[in-house]
Design a protein around this nucleic acid. Structure first.
Lengths: 244, 244, 244, 244
DNA sequence: TATGAATGAGTCTTCATTCAT
DNA sequence: CATGAATGAAGACTCATTCAT
């Protein structure tokens, strides 16, 4: 199994494999999936034959790129899970997914299980990614930071959409701000919000939920925004932070 | 004016042009921009030459599809403006944009003014579309139903993202629910932090979020940019840095 | 037979046929044989269908153009034969052939009997053209103005070559001067010339032959060049001139 | 430098490049510039992709053929310059140019500087060819074997014309004889009239010939241009005008 | 009958994949 | 094993010719 990932015994072969993978990742991210394989090879400083020695097809190369990306994200997700509060971990993770996808094709499409995607090499990574995503999601939901009722497919679709949103906005900073707004849609909203959001013309107070339990927060006209619904939740959050 | 859309005098030619346009719209929507032109022709029940008689290139055909789509949306938007309350009109319009775009390439990319897009045929439609979008947006903002500070580019990017989101979710109903959640991100919230970054109609440069929790940062007119949303996050980040 | 040439009974049909023929002649002359048939039709102000009504194929149209050209040349050649001295008639004719051919494909190729040329419609015109050319040639040869031993194929090839020469020289006036030089190669040369022309370094006196009998002309260091070898030939030429 | 011609390191690639070049040269020569690229590939015994590997477009292939031809001619011309007497060198060179051009498109058109020809690859070869041609021409002119007043453009146009002439004559031997006759037009003649128009190395604007007999007209530095070569022709023309 | 729309075979060109060096 | 040359299927586009209006 490591052989498949490493590309064989010889050191130079392993190095070449890594070069190709990295070049492919960059090329797909920059120019999209239509980038010619020859360009990738040139970028990696190898011949096309070498690319084919390591990856049996362009599709396979793309999948390897995705697998690597997924593995990186999995590691990052696990780190976040260990170190951050659930809600922060979840949203930080999602933001990272969005920011690192670029034009390489939405990683999360893999999670949404589009059957047109052959995933022989990917299955393992995808499953693990889905597990991490699910764990992060459930933790955040238990913490009240994410709406209950959403499943991993929903989150994946959200990530896909936010990736496209980021790519569509020329100004990356502005794009990130938009993504944050969109991701806020995953946060629980008070019943007031729900009702208000489809009514018109009145400027109602809608706050994000408590970061620990998701409960509605009393609006404050000014000053530092509330993060927790009360002392209990603030305590609980603090305990968790110290725990890692 | 209709001549441009109708494609000439003869009834059969007009019919064929319409068939081609419709087939192209469906084909692009289903299979993306890489669908072979021959497939479109077959789908329309005509020869490839007929496609080329009506549209001088594949690019032109794609633009015509977009133009038609835009024109439909423009008409719909104007109707909504006349008949509905501003906020409902705005969100209804956006939802329609998202629902009708599918894989045919992000209609709204046209609005985000990507210069790599040649728009000879489109310029008029795009401008009109942008006008309608802007009018709907401003009306909704005046009515307090949409965050101030957002511009048409932001809304277009949102639409692009939501289109991708919808396409990513296999279950269309679930996808639409997600889109609604995301679009709610455009509504105003009373979170003081957030309000700071989008105040009174001026589209400020939105800084990156807090490095620790991702929350929006209040813009500072001068001086060193903010890294954290507050002391808590700064403290936490410091602790983490010391930890490794 | 006139029906074939005239294009039918109706006056407008005849007019259309003429328009197409003229447009085709101009288009072939300007842009060569690769000019699209649609361009010719547009130029003629008719539809492509109308072109096909009068000429069953592009090839046939080209042949009709050639036939018309040939017929014009035939008439001109006969006029010249009647009115001018043989040598003048011959060279004037040749120059006209060259000047009127342009890029429409060398008319004289038809005479050189290239078998790749289908000539169903042309046979008659080509044969008549060849007859006129031959008559002019023989008369000029009898008059001593053209080298004996040359046949109509040679002359036709000369015309083809001079047409290309004229087209190659951007400056048309300079091109015509070159053509005259080349055509002079058809005139008889004294034995001195023949010997001299392949020897090197000495500037020998080579004059054109007598216009009536082709005999060598005594070189004159200055003044008006000699046209005739003597009084006899000058008389003979004068008589012929008065005869028409 | 040879790399450009050889096409790389590998022996088989070099061989293939040569095969393609040679096949293209033959195909263009035989069937003209419209020969399909697939035919060339088949003729060379390779796939179309191989042709495109060595030459990025059909145009480029054609230019490479021309460049090779030009380079061969350049070498030959330099050899002739070194070994033969000037006039023989010049005419021998010209004959070689004519004999080797066939239908592959007039090599010398390149010299006549038609701006519609893109010459990226060719520029160097064309310039060198023009230099050789000019050197040969001037040497022959100094030796008195070629009319003064002719420039390289004239000679190139002559070559183009003679190439067409040779192609037009089915019997190649007869064609070559014709070409020799035509080329003799470049030799000096003592006809005083002609001398006037091409004197001492300056390439004067050559006016149209006499309207009556076509003879060359002595250039006039100023004033109304000449129409007739003399009083006789003017008289004759007048008589004709009165006749109709 | 005139028109010009429809047709589809044929051309150039690209690029994923295979294979000789 | 690495290289990059060779391959050929596939796609965009043109235009001579046919056919419906």
């Amino acid at each position: 199994m490591t052989a498949v990932i490493d590309g064989g015994d010889r050191a130079d072969a392993r190095r070449n494999r890594a070069k190709v993978l990295s070049a492919a990742g960059a090329a797909f991210a920059e120019h999209g999936l239509d980038v010619p394989l020859g360009d990738i090879a040139r970028r990696a400083g190898v011949g096309t034959g070498t690319v084919y020695r390591h990856f049996p097809s362009k599709q396979a190369l793309l999948e390897a790129v995705h697998a690597q990306h997924l593995n990186d994200l999995i590691a990052s997700g696990e780190r976040r899970m260990a170190r951050s509060a659930p809600t922060e971990a979840f949203f930080g993770f999602l933001l990272e997914v969005v920011e690192t996808s670029q034009r390489r094709g939405p990683v999360c499409d893999l999670v949404t299980a589009d059957p047109s995607w052959p995933r022989p090499v990917l299955t393992a990574a995808v499953q693990r990614f889905r597990q991490v995503l699910t764990a992060l999601l459930h933790a955040a939901q238990r913490a009240g930071g994410v709406r209950p009722g959403l499943g991993p497919e929903d989150v994946a679709a959200f990530a896909v959409g936010c990736t496209a949103m980021l790519a569509a906005r020329r100004d990356r900073q502005a794009g990130l701000a938009l993504v944050r707004l969109a991701l806020d849609g995953l946060r629980p909203s008070t019943s007031v919000t729900e009702q208000a959001s489809f009514r018109d013309g009145v400027h109602r107070t809608i706050g994000a939920g408590c970061e620990e339990c998701g409960a509605a927060l009393a609006p404050r006209p000014t000053g530092r925004p509330l993060r927790y619904c009360g002392a209990t939740c603030r305590q609980r959050a603090r305990r968790r932070r110290l725990a890692d």
